[in-house]
Amino acid sequence: MTAKEYQSAAGKAIPHSKAARNIPTAFVVGGLLCVIGQAIIDLALFYGLEKDVASACGSISLIILSALLTGFNVYDNIAKYAGAGTLVPITGFANSMVSPAMEFKSEGYILGLGAKMFSIAGPVLVYGISASVIYGLILVLMGG
């Protein structure tokens, strides 16, 4: 068997992900998180907060919830089933910062926790901010 034939045999041997289960679960959990976020925003509006402040309340609450669940070793167990449902919303971002911070505390607060907490979220920040800068430039140039 040549390397090429082997790679094709290896490709055939790989079982498929359980998409029929994963995709609906991700949809439901992700949707549920959004509902929770919206409920917090509505509650904040109900108590008379400005729209901007109420939105920030929603995001902050979800971040705290995600960080707490990560700290109590629960988040990864939910994410195992929820997949993109817990990864895509802001909760996934919080988890991606809290989990390395917990993991690398053993290497100290500066080179461990401080440096490594961006190991997963760092690229998201870099390219997210870069994309927004480019979008902003385009908007300015197009006269928006």
Binding site: I14, P15, H16, S17, K18, N22, T70, G71, N73, Y75, D76, I78, A79, K80, A82, G83, T86, L87, G92, N95, S96, V98, S99, P100, M102, E103, F104, I120
Partner: peptide
Amino acid sequence: ERQFRFPLEYGGQRTPT
């Protein structure tokens, strides 16, 4: 895991392989 992959509490799905 911490050397080769992700932190233990990172919420990800492992591939079937």
